[in-house]
């Protein structure tokens, strides 16, 4: 296979470059290869758009979860509070 043909055919490599580009860095050569591949390959263009969506949704998912806050139940909190007080008394630590 010619080099160009290889670049155009190799979706496995292209998708891995897409991932590396999103969270890391590509060499100039890799970045050119990816551009060429994407110009010819509509399937990988779809992959790229979806991959970017997934990344941003994952971030949002975690931010949302943190903002909503899941509550610890009160019994557990109470026993936790007691353990802390206990430990403070035992250690006699100055605060």
């Amino acid at each position: 296979m010619s080099q160009l043909k290889e670049i155009i055919y190799n979706c496995k490599k292209a998708t891995s470059l897409i991932e590396r580009k999103e969270i890391g860095r590509l060499t100039l050569r890799e970045s050119v290869e990816l551009k060429i591949h994407l110009a010819f390959c509509s399937v990988c263009r779809i992959f790229r758009r979806q991959s970017i969506t997934i990344n941003s949704m994952v971030k949002m998912l975690f931010n949302d979860a943190q903002q909503r806050q899941t509550k610890l139940d009160d019994t557990f909190k109470k026993s936790l509070q007691e353990r802390i007080e206990d430990k403070l008394n035992k250690n006699g630590k100055k605060l």
Binding site: K71, I84, E85
Partner: peptide, 19 residues
């Protein structure tokens, strides 16, 4: 002020861990 930790941070930390 460790006596305030549970009230102030328990839910936050729990959420952090569970996600």
């Amino acid at each position: 002020d460790p006596l305030q930790w549970v009230a102030k941070y328990a839910d936050y930390l729990f959420t952090y861990a569970i996600t």
